[in-house]
């Protein structure tokens, strides 16, 4: 599904590599945590995965295709198969909660009544059914993040990448979100979750990738706080 092959990335030519010779392979239907200190490069890896950044060196293939060889339209079509939870929510401030969540379904026209139902269900699931018509400016950080999660999963993506989805929410909500991801994973979605939260990692039996100084230093079936 996703293959990083000796991938390096630097933001500007005179800067040193933020990501250095990275090798990761995420199989179809797998579930991984991506751990690493702040500034380790997790968001950078995610941005390469949704093709917001292209590797400055090495090969990255997504859905079996080299990203450097994709046309702009192909990139757009690939993105429709992906759900991305942005660290800052990635919401549009002039759209209300429901409109933000339904946005990915509007590219193909007006959502069907079945999709409308699905939108309401997912908003319920993240606990925001009473804030459907609120605008992001009036939401708390955690609420925004939950809207972002609902938006990322609403079109049942083949690949879900979540950048700190539990960063601003309490433990109960964090677990709830993880169950949602688990549920999607059971239906075939490949999941990668970046997190600092060690208790969350230990509560779920999924392998973790540990990122340090731009290099994956540990890839264990199960990562536990020492």
């Amino acid at each position: 599904m996703i293959r990083f092959d000796q991938v390096s990335y630097k933001y500007s030519p005179h800067q040193k590599d933020v990501i250095k010779n990275l090798n990761i392979e995420l199989e179809d239907g797998s579930f991984h945590f991506l751990c690493g200190a702040s500034g380790a490069g997790k968001t950078t890896i995610f941005r390469m995965m949704y093709m917001d950044l292209l590797p400055t060196d090495g090969n990255l293939s997504i859905f079996g295709r080299q990203v450097n060889a994709l046309s702009r339209d192909e990139i757009a079509i690939f993105r429709r198969k992906m759900g991305v939870v942005f660290q800052d929510g990635g919401l549009l401030n002039h759209l209300n909660v429901r409109e933000n969540v339904s946005l990915p379904l509007t590219l193909h026209g007006k959502p069907s009544s079945q999709q409308e139902k699905c939108i309401d269900e997912i908003i319920d699931w993240v606990g925001l059914s009473d804030k459907k018509n609120e605008y992001p400016a009036t939401l708390s950080g955690g609420e925004k993040q939950r809207v972002g999660i609902a938006k990322a999963v609403v079109n049942r993506p083949k690949l879900l990448i979540a950048d700190e989805p539990s960063g601003n929410v309490d433990e109960v909500m964090a677990k709830r979100i993880m169950y949602l991801f688990t549920e999607l994973n059971k239906h075939g979605t490949t999941v990668l979750v970046a997190t600092h939260d060690k208790s969350l990692i230990s509560a779920f039996d999924y392998p973790s990738l540990y990122l340090e100084n731009g290099i994956i230093t540990r890839s264990a079936k199960r990562w536990r706080a020492a």
Binding site: Y50, R72, D73, R80, V84, L103, L107, K151
Partner: peptide, 8 residues
């Protein structure tokens, strides 16, 4: 944002 959800 529209591009990120796959708008061409």
């Amino acid at each position: 944002t529209m591009q990120h959800i796959g708008a061409q």
